[in-house]
Nucleic acid binder design. Structure first.
Lengths: 174, 174
DNA sequence: CCGAGTCAGTTCAATGAATGAACCGTAAGG
DNA sequence: CCTTACGGTTCATTCATTGAACTGACTCGG
């Protein structure tokens, strides 16, 4: 995806996040990293991605601070790829994607289940309100520009989104 | 991405989810749908994606059951694209991606904040244990094959993952 | 010392997808 | 009749992905 060719004009955080995570194979690499895969050859064996693409994606993720290289032997020098703290914080993203797939794909032949180690219970994903503690659905959510946001785009949609807006409601376009 | 060329061999649910959602532009389209964008021309104006790609992605999402076409005028016939129930359930995925980007990208110039309409509080994402109710980190999570899973792959990583495994711990490879 | 094997890549020709500009069809408005 | 709006399709060019072959540093066994 965005190698050399970014989501230009989309300076928003979401688009820039996808420039890092949204390329082909990237999220599969990260999933494998959560599963404990660390070495080039093991990613390769499990993903069947072309070696060149895998090398490129690992590099991109290291540069982005999602993975870190750790030397595991000196001669010949060999590194393994481990999730950084920022990488580990991608866990909710991966979990939600998996959970959605488990619910909505027809005939999931091979699905993974996630369990709480302490108590053995199954996991569930949530968006919660920090203030009142309740679970919040998309329909009860408002988007608004964060502090210090600049507005470089001037198409009708971008202009409409300068005002706070309730999710899923049709935009009022000029 | 996976048009005609799937993540072959990866029959797992996660890979199949990414075949639907992981193509270039797709998650940006879905984000815009949450923001209330519904018409071809508005997606186009906001995303600056090539018309052909946008048309293809909208079609793919309709086929996958994430979006539905709704007729909004009869002559000439015009449809708008609205999230289905399955599409709305992608909200946690989108929220987590945005939240991660807000936290981890340097100098987010243009960020979006999400607020609970009922109480005005800011939102936070979680993975929670359904049994004990506590928030669960990746390190306290175990992956295991779901019921009825078949094991078509026989590389060392796939074999190791037939047993329950704690996330982030290195795999014991044969 | 030699040859085979391991690991982590790089290189390269062929294929397939993305891009952007131009075009098309239906219809409303003037 | 002419122009505009909308939602596409078509097509040549550019770019990314693919898979196979190759490299280079090293280890091990004989």
């Amino acid at each position: 995806m965005g190698l050399g060719k970014d989501y230009s004009g989309q300076n928003c955080t979401f688009a820039r996040t996808l420039e890092i995570l949204g390329e082909r194979w990237t999220l599969l690499v990260i999933r494998d990293a959560f599963y404990g895969v660390r070495r080039f050859g093991d990613f390769l064996a499990h993903l069947d991605a072309p070696r060149a693409v895998l090398a490129d994606r690992l590099d991109t993720l290291v540069t982005a601070g999602v993975l870190a290289k750790q030397r595991y032997q000196e001669s010949p020098p060999r590194d393994e790829y481990v999730l950084t703290d920022a990488g580990v914080e991608l866990w909710p993203v991966l979990f939600q994607l998996t959970a959605w797939g488990n619910r909505h794909l027809d005939s999931p032949r091979s699905l993974r289940v996630f369990r709480h180690l302490d108590c053995g219970g199954l996991l569930a994903g949530f968006v919660r309100c920090d203030a009142c503690g309740r679970t919040v659905e998309a329909a009860d959510t408002q988007v608004e520009p964060g502090p210090g946001t600049t507005f470089p785009r001037s198409d009708r949609v971008s202009v409409a989104l300068r005002e706070p807006h309730r999710l899923l409601q049709p935009l009022q376009l000029a």
